[in-house]
Amino acid sequence: MELLYYPGCTLKTSAVNLEESAFAVAEALGHSMIEMEEWNCCGVSASLTEDDLMHHLAPLRNLVHAEDQGMDRIVTLCDMCSNTLKQTDYRVREREDDLKTLNDFMDQENDYRMTVSVQHFLEFLRDDVGWKTLKKKVVNPLKGVRIMPYYGCMLLRPREVAIDDAEEPRIMADLIKALGAEVVDNPYKIECCGSYKTIEEKEMTSRRAKTISTYAVERDADLIMLSCPLCKYNIDQRGKEAELLFDGYSQIPVMYYTQLLAIALGLEGDWGFGAHAVDPTPLLEEKGVLPISEGST
């Protein structure tokens, strides 16, 4: 089926590898991702003050553009976009008067008729594709690879926009099992990675990354799976920098679930490992899930 895809800013810049691997996976599963013709910034992060309707305009416009394209669903890859769009969708549905003010304010766009739902790509895999069909399509099962799922907070909180049980999410664990790999459960999977604090609080974010990754290393996990580009940067990049702060600490690789899915489906492509501070290729080759390509770094 055709999926109306809302990329968001980061997917076009530092998280291109997430987009490419997601496109490849969608195609392999027989779906096509069609980028929205008109889209603007998702308005991250959702404004929480009662009187501030202004900041809901940007996400609302995206919902209206989707309605213009006659689609009833937007699929997003970035956790923060999904969270922000859902929060606005939730607020306008809860309070008609806010919707009315926003609709009246928007003169060029049509009114939002609340016919669109926002779906994160993970939800799409679970609800529309289904783990059974996914498992059947896996040709190169990630046998023997121990993966620690990391959710962060945007997929699970606040409760109105959670895509899974906020205390005991299973969506990534199910995905890992479908890929034939082993799940390394961990208590940090729903704790914040530091989010945008990474800009001004580098050491703090490095310490966060170290806490989360050390747990994985102690449980001899091979890599951490996640879905949000900011979590990836914080754990991967800041985790790498943590090696300078704490001697003897070495950061284990971090990967997007779409990259792992692409490999498991046996698709060809370099999945943008170059953009990772810790290149997962050596590990994947050692585990035999990636063919030993000469000259890889």
Partner: peptide, 17 residues
Amino acid sequence: EEKRSIPQMAFVSLFRK
């Protein structure tokens, strides 16, 4: 270098907050 590598979403969030 940081301005280039840090994901934009971080900047947008930081500015908004």
